[in-house]
Design a protein around this nucleic acid. Structure first.
Lengths: 335, 335
DNA sequence: TTGTAGGCGTTATCAA
DNA sequence: TTGATAACGCCTACAA
């Protein structure tokens, strides 16, 4: 008689391991994952051997389900190719790895609607924490919906952490943007620059506004009032920095220094200056914020304010402690 | 009489939604996730309204568990701050997003042991596919274990894709490194360079070896035999490129061109040349592979071979089709 | 079109 | 220390 053997799923389950090891399901579970290790050594060995023999792999979704949650961290970033966010992500993953956690990641591409969407997706995964790294805009249309999701997540026992977004009512890792701006202004003023120009980025971006505010404060203190026409709005990316700078050069602005509200923009501005044949730093200095990795290779050197991005990504708890630090300039002459 | 209200988990379940909507569990399930939409419009509306009212969020682990798997993609990369991998990741996430999938990510930090570990972690998540982006080394000690895991994963119905690692017996997205090397050699020879030096990276790295082989071929064809002493081994990172170049300069090598096996190293070499006051590209040209984003801002410009990284990350199926393309040089004089 | 009921793999409770 | 067994939240035949 030919019996049809049911096409058992090729992946063995804990049940298979238990049977193979000659113990109960409970014992197998405890041996492989149990926290309170109250399993006799010899049966532990049996179970492990059986698991090995069968090529057993824990079914994490099932486990998370049974436990009512996982230990994963869901990280929401704007754009993973932006060194700023890559550094944060690297920090988070390094930390998670050493904690035996998994990092799930979603990108928003700087679109608030997609951000909301990613948070919904994140919530569905039932992670231990949702970490938001991005930047809020001023008229924040999706804010209510976002807070609704996040509050519900916290109500369910989840943890929410906002990196660099102090306007969110959750645990946060914050950067003192205004303070960094003041420091940077003081530093460049100390280097002798007198006619600064500020590439301010988008007016709606809080991070950009705070940095500009800090710069204005700092220059003011140094006796260099920053009039409104010296602060130019524009986009927040590399190409935006290049375009804005190019426009300014074409318009014939006078300045001995350009400060962009982030390094990426500063690098763009550098390209525009190079193209226009304006000597840096002789005829014009260039400065930015963040001290991202590529800034190190910007030639000529950039003056930049360092932000502890990797640390931010790897910070576990997060009292609203402002962190900032400045960094000296590279090898360029006046910096 | 005071009754203790059981502390119900704050997150409502599908069961709660069904009750709230006055329908059965099955109907609620079908209305919210069902594929074959055979739910009457009015009850569909009732369910959606109830879900909205309760702030219901699907329990993805439970769903994945019940369905016996998820649609997620697990991406394993060496280092997310490396623009090379960031580009691949961005491509994968973009694609996944438009497919309504989630990307789980793990980093190996170029450590084979950690890679094996990440693959195990990946398998536990029961994703639809595991995508490996990295580079294999030659004496590949973990290979057997790795293949064991991946084979088991495929046996369980999963899909494995290797990006840029043709030695793995799975679906792959491959780059024609040797071809790129030939192209690059031909291009720079055409620009008039005659005394090339190659920063070859680690001898164990297959990707590096193939590129070097292509370069040697190409130079040979151009009548510029590449003797062994013109090919210098070293690390694969930016700092390695800088260090190797610095050593070479100190040793007084003669050359009119340096070709690094990747842009990151080339950028490092550029830093060493700048430091040593060697004019680029007048006294020495610099070339690399990958055409990563920061290369665009390398000053002076780099000659580089473009690789379709984002496309690679977003490629769904993957016949072993080799893809390559070259790119012209930037604004520098001789390139 | 809707509801009932069994099952998915693991954990956790409670006896033995 | 171990073993039954009942959840856990959702999906899906199967029946109604």
């Amino acid at each position: 008689m030919l019996r049809i053997v049911p096409a058992r799923p090729a992946t063995p389950t804990l049940y298979d391991v238990a049977r193979e090891a000659g113990v109960s399901l409970a014992t197998a579970s405890r041996a492989l994952n149990g926290s309170a290790r109250r399993v006799r050594e010899d049966s532990r060995v049996k179970v492990l051997a059986a698991a090995e023999r069968l090529g057993y792999s824990t079914n994490a979704p099932a486990q998370a389900f049974a436990r009512g949650g996982s230990t994963s961290i869901f990280l929401v970033v704007s754009d993973i190719t932006d060194p700023f966010f890559a550094a944060i992500a690297a920090g988070a993953m390094r930390r998670a790895g050493s904690d035996g956690r998994l990092v799930l990641m979603g990108v928003t591409e700087r679109d608030p609607a997609r951000e909301l969407d990613m948070v919904r997706t994140a919530r569905r995964q039932r992670p231990a924490a949702i970490v938001l790294a991005g930047s809020r805009r001023h008229p924040d249309r999706t804010r209510a919906a976002l807070l609704g999701e996040l509050d519900a997540f916290e109500a369910g026992g989840g943890r929410v952490v906002a990196i660099g977004q102090d306007s969110l009512p959750y645990a946060r890792v914050s950067f003192d943007h205004a303070g960094s701006g003041r420091d940077l202004a003081a530093a460049v003023a100390g280097l002798g620059y007198r006619r600064p120009l500020v590439l301010a980025g988008p007016a709606e971006l809080q991070i950009a506004r705070e940095r500009v505010r800090g710069l204005a404060d700092g220059f003011e203190t140094a006796g260099i009032p920053l009039s409104g026409d010296r602060v130019v709005s524009g986009g927040f990316g590399r190409d935006d920095g290049e375009a804005t700078m190019r426009d300014l050069l074409r318009a014939g602005v006078e300045a001995d220094l350009v400060v962009a509200v982030n390094d990426v923009m500063a690098i763009g501005a550098l390209a525009a200056l190079r193209e226009a044949g304006v000597g840096v730093p002789d005829r014009m200095g260039v400065a930015g914020f963040d001290d991202i990795a590529p800034s190190r290779d910007a030639a000529p050197a950039l003056t930049t304010v360092r932000l502890p991005l990797e640390e931010a990504g790897s910070t576990r708890s997060s009292s609203p402690s402002a962190t900032r630090s400045t960094r000296g300039c590279g090898s360029a002459r006046r910096c």
